[in-house]
Amino acid sequence: METFIPLAIAILAAPLFPGIILKVKAFFAGKNGPPLLIKYYTLIKLLKKGSVYSNSTTFVFKLGPIVSFASAFIVLLFFPFAGGSPLFSFHGDVIALFYLMGIGRFFTVAAALDTASPFEGMGAAREVFFSTLAEVTIFTVLVLFYRLTGSLSFAEYFTGENPISLLSASGALLLFVIVALFMVMLTENSRVPVDDPATHLELTMIHEVMVLDHSGPDLALIELGSFYKLFFYAAFITHILYPFTAASSLVNGLIFYALLSLIYVAIGITESIMARFKMDLVPKFILTSFALVFFAAILTMGVLQ
């Protein structure tokens, strides 16, 4: 039971938090903004609708939403939300999970190319390039974590005797990781300053343009998958910020969701005060995140430990 409740809450609550981002952005713009539950309404609306499929498409187009949803969902099953033990876990699961996210990306991209639309092709090309760079940062983070604790799964990172967190002995290094992961989160979830889903021009989008032709429940699956992905990254950063070692899981849960909301607020603030980068500056942005983590990893080489 202990493992199911946090997971169930996470699965149900994930669409709530993007609403916070919208609220923050509206606050900065001096508007009221949509209701907090807007994403639930959107999902319900989409699920009620039928779909339009392009004549160019094949079954690959329909596989796109399913695989990307499944790959985002499976990650949640391995994540120890609020320090509770996850549903499944094994030594080495992080490698598998980040590769599973890769298969989600593969099919999203394939579905985009299936529509024969030049814009979607353009978005797909950018997506594969940028997420390759982001993946490099993530694996360097895993290298650093293994170097620090010798563990190779989310459960080992964040539960047990000596969880990875900013408050632990090697906390200074984790500051780099947090900044870098925040940058990766912005990249992988197509937020400003890497990508601007709210822009009116398809030419300048990355992720949003790839799902242009999806509609109805297919789009709902994609949206839900992207909420889960964002939720996972935000939870990842939250866990590095603070170790959830309190005895009461209720206290842990409350602190977790409070910190998580702060991360979403931070995304909202970033989106409000920054403009989207020129497309050729995006690799530099991601590379900076890699440089930070790699730098932290070098510092573990008998210098700072």
């Binding site: 530099k284 900076t288 730098f295 700072l304």
Partner: peptide, 24 residues
């Protein structure tokens, strides 16, 4: 917990990295 001189040096190193990557 966090050594001040080390933090200063790490910030220095970071500033080096940033200066190599800055466009303006």
């Amino acid at each position: 917990m966090i050594n001040i001189s080390q933090s200063i040096l790490v910030i220095t190193l970071l500033s080096v990295l940033l200066s190599l990557g800055s466009t303006r």
